[in-house]
């Protein structure tokens, strides 16, 4: 199946012998025509590939509605000089790693817990998961109200037990973290689900064998569950990092990057600069985001998958 294919001229699927074609055609094309790629390819090339490639050019320009002027790397220089843009750059990493880390830890614990024999398991799984499907805007608005520093329900509850609630979204040092926590609230269900799927795949014999050897719950977790959940962890890490680095909806809904620009991330900077009419600068932000995502995700996925193969 591997050698015969190099020519591409072979008619039907190689490796199996189809005696003689009853349908006679002069040039029998493959039954799996390459032109099946074309319709999808048109959408993909026109609206993804071309804009992505064009972004590298436009990021080097001063670009308004009316004209394009080549200015070299000025946009990027500006990007890393203006404090608010640098803040957005740094925040992107904080946000992505914070949400990703919490989703891995909480998702793992919840996944293992919800795989054990407890009452109400189906209800619990459904409850943890359903925020994943709810509109991000809806969740953002909801928590913006719940986290209101003046009379918002969360702080009201904290006040009854004597804790002065912070200004979750109004305190500059806390706003980004608050949004990240809401992101985890919304997204942990997906991580949990992936871990549950991973748990199901672990053969039960392993635990029985460990039981014979006298392993306790902790040893089971440490030496069976954790190593065998590695593929699930890789998935959760990659998915949540991709989502976290690109995150826009929730931040935009809850804080709009504020107070000031303390909770701005690259994606919200891109939008703000676009709104302000600095298309070149906005596109430069896009390119920075592109580079950040690519520079983290591609090596990481290669490394994670390679380590997985060695074991």
């Amino acid at each position: 199946m591997t050698t015969a294919t190099a020519t591409g001229r072979t008619s039907t699927s190689p490796g199996t012998i189809v005696p003689s074609e009853p349908v006679k055609r002069r040039r029998m094309k493959s039954s799996y025509p390459t032109w099946f790629f074309i319709p999808a390819g048109v959408f993909y090339v026109v609206l993804f590939l071309i804009p992505t490639i064009a972004s590298f050019y436009f990021s080097l320009t001063r670009w308004t509605l009316f004209d394009v002027e080549f200015i070299g790397f000025d946009n990027f220089v500006r990007f890393f000089q203006e404090p608010q843009l640098v803040q957005g750059f740094v925040n992107t990493f904080i946000y992505a790693f914070l949400t990703s880390g919490l989703k891995v830890v909480l998702g793992l614990l919840l996944g293992v817990f919800l795989s054990s024999q407890i009452i109400g398991r189906g209800f619990l799984r459904a409850t943890v998961f359903f925020p994943v499907l709810v509109s991000t805007i809806g969740v953002g608005i909801l928590f913006q109200v719940l986290m209101d520093p003046f009379g918002g329900p969360i702080n009201e509850v904290l006040a009854t037990v004597g804790i002065p609630g912070p200004g979750w979204l109004t305190d500059p040092s806390l706003a980004l973290v608050s949004v990240a926590l809401v992101d985890v609230w919304k997204g942990v269900g997906l991580a949990t689900l992936i871990y549950i799927a991973g748990m199901v795949a672990i053969p039960h014999e392993y635990f029985e064998a460990a039981k014979v050897d006298g392993a306790g719950a902790w040893n089971n977790f440490r030496h069976i569950t954790l190593p065998l959940l590695r593929p699930a962890t890789v998935t959760v890490v990659l998915l949540s990092l991709i989502g976290g680095l690109r995150s826009f909806d929730l931040i935009w809904t809850m804080t709009g990057g504020g107070p000031g620009f303390t909770s701005d991330v690259l994606a919200s900077v891109v939008y703000k600069q676009y709104q302000a009419g600095f298309f070149g600068l906005s596109t430069a932000g896009n390119v920075v985001l592109f580079v950040v995502v690519a520079a983290i995700i591609f090596p990481l996925s290669w490394w994670l998958n390679r380590k997985g193969d060695e074991q």
Partner: peptide, 9 residues
Amino acid sequence: IIPPAVVPT
């Protein structure tokens, strides 16, 4: 993986 390039789009 790659985020959309919005303004060029």
